[in-house]
């Protein structure tokens, strides 16, 4: 008999016997999760021959889900007629391997916070819009926040986040984190135009260019207690698709100057914590700024 055929026969018979006697080694796609580890060598505890895995309910009673926290119970009850293995896999590392939000009904699908803990970092303060405005359902990151609604990055402004948003606070920005925008350099030129408020650069220069100013006068600044070049802004407004920034022509000139800018951790010490929204039409100047600082 051909020696090659003998070797082939030995290999094939070994594989057949191995698959029958030690299926967890020859056939299993991976070790079971910790909770099911004791079933590692008992494939038929979960698998029905020629039907697949589907004996979950033998151990996990559906009514047990009612004992779970409400959100979790509701989540599972609203999945419809799908089986456990539509989402869960027991072999390998990840227990939930192929969950799709499409399995949920539309109402549950839109209630992100029903299952996910809402982020509380500074980047999300004041955001009232749906998570889907920035985030996809595939993964939390990357998010698709349209920065261009607030400030368009041109070739001269390929800056790192921290250059403008200092202290990891994305609710405020400063243009004076960059060497090109010294307040002393621009004060004179703006004063000629009657612009004394130097806190909200983007209000007139949405692309950071000198000549893209929509108006030659500064718009009123929301009374958020900010003194100096750092201004709080409302991201929710941006997300709502606000194409024009608040405060346009015909508004009073705010004269809260930026003199006395002191960089502390990249931010002005004049920064306050006031609420957004109420308009600030004060005419105070540098002196008043000093007072506020106190």
């Amino acid at each position: 008999m051909n020696k090659g055929l003998v070797i082939a026969l030995v290999l094939v018979v070994s594989a057949a016997l191995g698959s029958l006697l030690r299926p967890h080694q020859f056939l299993s796609p991976g070790p079971l999760i910790q909770g099911h580890a004791k079933l590692d060598q008992d494939c038929l505890a979960c698998h029905r021959p020629f039907e697949g895995p589907g004996k979950c309910e033998n151990c996990h009673k559906p009514e047990d889900f009612l004992k779970k926290p409400v959100a979790k119970a509701e989540f599972h009850h609203k999945l419809g007629p799908k089986t456990c293995i539509s989402c869960h896999t027991d072999h390998g590392v990840r227990h939930v391997s192929h969950f799709s939000h499409n399995l949920l009904d539309s109402k549950t699908n839109q209630d992100c916070s029903g299952c996910h803990k809402a982020p509380t970092d500074k980047n999300h303060i004041g955001v009232k819009e749906s998570c889907s405005a920035c985030h996809g359902q595939g993964a939390f990151k990357p998010a698709s926040f349209e920065h261009g609604k607030w400030f368009h990055f041109d070739k001269n402004h390929k800056a790192k986040c921290i250059t403008c948003h200092q202290g990891e606070d994305y609710t405020s920005y400063t243009c004076f984190g960059c060497h090109a925008h010294g307040m002393g350099e621009i004060r004179g030129e703006h004063a000629e135009e009657g612009i004394l408020d130097l806190r909200d650069c983007v209000g007139c220069h949405p692309s950071g260019k000198e000549y893209d100013a929509k108006m030659r006068r500064s718009r009123p600044v929301k009374d958020n207690g900010i003194q100096g070049p750092v201004r709080q802004y409302d991201r929710a407004e941006a997300l709502a698709g606000m194409s024009a920034l608040p405060g346009q022509a015909g508004t009073a000139v705010d004269s809260a100057g930026g003199q006395g800018v002191q960089e502390s951790g990249g931010r002005s010490e004049h920064e306050g914590k006031g609420e957004h929204g109420s308009e600030h039409h004060s005419e105070h100047g540098d002196d008043e700024e000093e007072e506020d600082d106190d």
């Binding site: 051909n2 090659g4 055929l5 290999l11």
Partner: peptide, 17 residues
Amino acid sequence: RKGHMPVTYTFFFLALF
């Protein structure tokens, strides 16, 4: 051929299993 055919048979049966 004496080598190729056994290797092919081995593959065939293992894939079948």
